[in-house]
Amino acid sequence: MSAGLLYALAGAALFAFGVAGLILRSHPLRKILAFNVMGSGAFLVLVGLGQRDGTADPVPQAMVLTGIVVSIAATALALALARRQREHGNDKEERDA
């Protein structure tokens, strides 16, 4: 079995981890981690599967670079929303107290 296929299989497992985490965990920070793990899994499948004959393939590699930038963009937005939500939660508690 080539290294590419091996890492693609690992990617499949990571993707499944991420999906389970995204559905099962309720804390926003945990969901953000889960989404990143899921993305990493998909990236590994993309590159690993493309390189299962053992030669480097620049096309999926470039796509994963794009994907990593998209991931951090989404992560930052999600964190901003989660923090704002928490601030609202704090404000509400303060008003109630």
Binding site: A3, G48, Q51, Q61
Partner: peptide
């Protein structure tokens, strides 16, 4: 892992 997959650009990123 990216370095192992001959993908140094991704490894850096």
């Amino acid at each position: 892992a990216w370095a192992r997959l001959d993908a140094p650009d991704i490894a850096l990123a």
